[in-house]
Simulated scan of single mutants.
Amino acid sequence: MASSTMNLAFLLLSMFLVTCTALPGGFSIVGYSEEDLTSHDKLIELFDSWMSRHSKSYANFEEKLRRFEVFKDNLKHIDETNRQKRSYWLGLNAFADMTHDEFKATYLGVSTSMPRRRDSGSSFRYENAVDLPKSVDWRKKGAVTHVKNQGHCGSCWAFSTVAAVEGINQIVTGNLTSLSEQELIDCDSENNGCHGGLMDYAFSYIASTGGLHTEDDYPYLMEEGTCERTRADLEVVTISGYEDVPENSEESLLKALAHQPVSVAIEASGRDFQFYSGGVFDGSCGSELDHGVTAVGYGSSKGQDYFTVKNSWGQRWGERGYIRMKRNTGKPQGLCGINKMASYPTKHA
């Protein structure tokens, strides 16, 4: 079909225009400019540019039209939110052609229906910690690997687990080693692979089976595969066990986080979370936990206290793959339930 005909079809389907007021940070941060919102032609150009930037293609013209409608609806939400001048902003990331229901079904994966099991004899070793630093960033301390991407697999629980294990291993041994999420997906039978799981179960698996292989030796497939524990002659990283942070206690989470990266669960199903692009997030969310991430630090910015959280949606989401989530909210469970289900691996020196 000729380009002019395609553009005409887009024009007939386009129903979204907004007025121009200042945007936070411009195109480089949010992925669109004020000029993009001034006409139907500009919206079409923006969509084509977004497709190119994120290497998007569709099976047929009808699917492209459908995704353009979804894109416009998402852009409208992003722009309306940004004009509220909040402490965070949203952007046209790789999820901009997905409906919110599609996004939730694909990228979340903590199974709170699974009973949380306490490690026998577990305690909270940081209970009596005092004189905590005002800020902590385990990335600067060399205990955090590159941001990874779980893709179309509900394996966030594995990425949360692995990031925490990578952290404690570096703290104890001095070696930062990227470890295998795929091994957990394939071999940890107490969890459900791409269909969700719990970090505590994964910690228990690693401790009881003698360790976790490296990412290079057991690479990520973005789908469930066959367990290959026969790679036993290759390098593994071990932990001795895990401990749970007392529930609904931000003070306890800070104590743990001052000593090592911590696996946490949050409610990430809010629409603003899908398009978070930067700033200190204080958006609307509940505490129905559905996503596993890893807290890797805390600090303050412009009077707002926050947790620094590593996600597993790639480096193009958020702040190069991270989100700063507001703390000191006055709610025991914390923003998006971040204080409800935190845990960390232990490792003997």
Rank of each mutant, 00 (worst) to 15 (best):
A2N: 15
S3K: 15
A9E: 03
S14L: 07
S28C: 12
V30K: 09
T38V: 07
W50P: 05
V70N: 06
N74L: 06
I78N: 06
T81M: 12
S87D: 12
N93C: 05
D97F: 01
H100C: 01
Y107D: 05
L108H: 08
L108P: 01
G109R: 03
S113C: 01
S113L: 09
D119W: 12
F124L: 07
V130T: 14
L132T: 13
L132C: 10
K140G: 01
V144H: 09
G154D: 13
C156I: 02
W157E: 07
A163Q: 08
E166K: 07
I168G: 04
G174A: 06
N175I: 00
L176T: 04
S180N: 06
Q182L: 04
I185L: 06
I185F: 00
D188W: 02
D188A: 15
G193E: 04
L198A: 11
L212H: 11
H213T: 04
D217K: 09
E235A: 04
T238N: 12
E243Q: 13
D244K: 15
S252A: 15
S263C: 03
F273S: 05
F281R: 05
D282E: 13
G286Q: 10
E288W: 10
G297S: 13
S300T: 03
T308K: 14
V309L: 02
V309H: 02
R320W: 12
K326H: 10
Q333I: 05
C336T: 07
I338L: 14
A342W: 05
H348M: 08
